[in-house]
């Protein structure tokens, strides 16, 4: 059976590397599934999860946006940060969510609402992935 080499790399180092049968994720233009033999493609990603199907099991990786690069035998995800679902620190994610919410409610000028919203979305994404596991 044909497989795809999937790797997730971040500035802080590679996060994930494996051979898989299918990768699906959410791009900015919609949900996207990649099977082996896909034509070369580049797509920007949403903050969300990457599902990697291999040998009957599915692995989840939380990514904070970034890019998806597809080659016929290879998928590379370039994200500014990414974590495997079982490595997510739930307590830290919850703290980050609470902090971001507080910043959003604070209506004073020095708060960058867009950044706070983005960090809230990243935190919620991590929490939902971590909780799905347990």
């Amino acid at each position: 059976m044909k497989t795809l080499q999937v790797s997730v790399v971040t500035p802080d180092g590679p996060v994930y590397d494996a051979d898989a049968q299918m990768v699906s994720t959410k791009a900015q233009s919609g949900d996207l599934g990649v099977l082996p033999g896909h034509i070369p493609m580049v797509a920007p990603l949403e903050i969300g999860s990457v599902r990697v199907k291999k040998d009957g099991s599915t692995e989840f990786i939380a990514v904070s946006g970034g890019l998806l690069e597809v080659r016929p035998d290879k998928v590379t995800i370039l994200a500014q940060s990414a974590e495997k679902a079982d490595n997510i620190d739930l307590a830290r994610a919850k703290a980050a969510a609470a902090r971001a919410e507080k910043r959003l409610q604070d209506k004073s000028d020095h708060v960058d609402a867009r950044r706070a919203e983005l960090s809230l979305r990243r935190a919620i994404n991590r929490i939902s992935l971590a909780e799905k596991k347990f």
């Binding site: 791009a27 900015q28 233009s29 996207l32 034509i39 070369p40 493609m41 580049v42 797509a43 920007p44 890019l67 690069e69």
Partner: peptide
Amino acid sequence: YEFEPSAEDI
């Protein structure tokens, strides 16, 4: 590459 949705967005 094929661009999804477009080269500008990428």
